[in-house]
Write a protein that binds this DNA or RNA. Sequence first.
DNA 1: CACTGAACTTACAAAATTGTAAGCTAAACA
DNA 2: TGTTTAGCTTACAATTTTGTAAGTTCAGTG
Lengths: 118, 118
Amino acid sequence: MIKTTSTNYINAQTLHGLCDAAYTLAMISGRWKLTLLVKLREGNQRFSELKTQLPAITERVLALQLKELEKSGLIIKKASALKSKLYHYELSPLGKSLDQVIQSLSDWGKINNLQSEL
Amino acid sequence: MIKTTSTNYINAQTLHGLCDAAYTLAMISGRWKLTLLVKLREGNQRFSELKTQLPAITERVLALQLKELEKSGLIIKKASALKSKLYHYELSPLGKSLDQVIQSLSDWGKINNLQSEL
DNA sequence: CACTGAACTTACAAAATTGTAAGCTAAACA
DNA sequence: TGTTTAGCTTACAATTTTGTAAGTTCAGTG
């Protein structure tokens, strides 16, 4: 879906070569990705659990975001041993290493996000 | 340009109410925003300076990103005192308070962004 | 007063993301 | 064996972001 010949794509790549922060940002950008990481950190692991945690997300988008997170290596999809056909998702070591990043984002938001006081 | 009635917009708002990290992320998301903040932190302040620092950015997009950052309160546009018609941009106190966030993003990228080794 | 350069703006188009609605598959259950 | 349920996938469309190309405005310079 991404055209690797587009100016947009090339600009992103160039930027990631120039700015580490922008690279990190790109890994966690996407409407629901960051929140998914937070939820996974809290222990929710099944597709349906995540769906419940993010009421407004559609199955299509949830599947997409999970797939991208998996492709970036931040999460791992595993078949659950006991009940066959059931999967669960978990943070990879790389995903866990984002802890400090997520914490910073969360801390800043806690202070500056007026909406969260509602 | 943003339709405040779209599902997309509503989902974003809902998410920001549920997840502080997502709120913070939204403030700094945009192809060049984060890198602009980094450059401003390094002292580049004029429109043309910023343009030079980010070779591939177009004037239109630079103006757009600066305007959004200003609207979010992260930067301030000031008329330079001496030479009239010249402006400069600087980080607001709110923008400066992102320091830890940007540092975390940058640190993680430094470790995990293979491209930056080129 | 013509000319240049900085800092934009406008009209348009391409690309990318996100959402809607429906369907599909395999296991589990009644 | 028919029905559910979880976990997707597909075709499509709306929305949003980003880029292209060309102008505009106004101060400073010669």
